[in-house]
């Protein structure tokens, strides 16, 4: 099964990204590279700057210094709203709009930003919901769904805009354990379908099996990055080894 027709995914690079909130230097020169269609998993202790890094990649937070490139081209001078339509983001807490049906959650941006007609937007949304296994929930309100279902709606909502890159911010951390698998399944399918993805996660199984690159972040920098086998079997940095010892 393919979750989406991703014909247009692009490569992504973050170069020397710096960001400080006041005296708190959250990102201290982050480099990250994902090839077109690749999946990078970002792991690391909480507070290491993983979520903040994701938000600088779609410029929900503007970096102080450094660059973000899609297909080798800097996006920092683009219109940030247009950029965010190209780079989808899925949140830990889903952030669905509770006052709208599942279907309207997915069609809202199609209608208002992509200017699709009602029928066309609904058709795209229904296809997308079908692909995450929730075609039957189109008329439900988000609060009537389980966390796992809500997260899959959030993924469908982001995918409906046909993004070229997808970012996942601990997409399964807020879910009950039995609901994690469904969401990871959707993400796995998306990765195999050739979507370029950056996945901040604590799911080491997912990182090991799905990622092309695993980056270990600590205190605002990527300490070590490489293919999953090297990170999980041959970690060099002592802090990474300590981290792995704790989470595995």
């Amino acid at each position: 099964m393919t979750t989406t027709a991703t014909t247009t995914s692009v490569s992504l690079q973050a170069r020397d990204v710096h960001l400080a909130f006041g005296p708190n230097r959250v990102l201290r020169g982050v480099d990250l590279s994902v090839q077109r269609g690749g999946t990078a998993c970002v792991i690391g202790p909480s507070g290491s700057g993983k979520s903040t890094l994701l938000r600088t990649l779609n410029r929900l937070i503007e970096p102080d210094r450094g660059d973000v490139l899609l297909d080798g081209r800097s996006v920092l001078r683009d219109d940030p709203d247009a950029l965010r339509q190209r780079v989808g983001l899925v949140f830990q807490q889903f952030n669905l709009f509770p006052h709208m049906s599942v279907l309207r959650n997915v069609t809202l941006a199609l209608r208002r930003l992509r200017k699709l007609g009602e029928d066309e937007a609904v058709a795209v949304a229904r296809d997308q919901l079908e692909l995450v296994g929730l075609a039957g929930k189109a008329d439900a309100r988000p609060a009537q769904l389980s966390g796992g279902q809500q997260q899959r709606v959030a993924i469908a909502r982001a995918l409906a805009l046909r993004p070229e890159v997808m970012l996942f911010d601990e997409a399964t951390s807020a879910l009950d354990p039995e609901l994690v698998k469904g969401v990871l399944g959707v993400m796995t399918d998306l990765s195999s379908a050739g979507m370029t993805m950056v996945v901040v996660t604590h799911e080491m199984g997912f990182a090991r099996h799905v990622a092309d690159t695993v980056a270990f972040m600590d205190r605002g920098v990527v300490l070590e990055a490489g293919p999953p086998e090297r990170i999980f079997e041959g970690a060099e940095h002592p802090r990474l080894r300590r981290f792995l010892a704790q989470v595995l």
Binding site: G148, Q149, G185
Partner: peptide, 20 residues
């Protein structure tokens, strides 16, 4: 909310399992 994804008709191809 419903406790489980009973409507789940996903083909979980390649879903990581047992490694968590």
């Amino acid at each position: 909310a419903p406790a489980d994804d009973e409507d789940d008709d996903l083909a979980l191809a390649g879903a990581p399992e047992g490694d968590r």
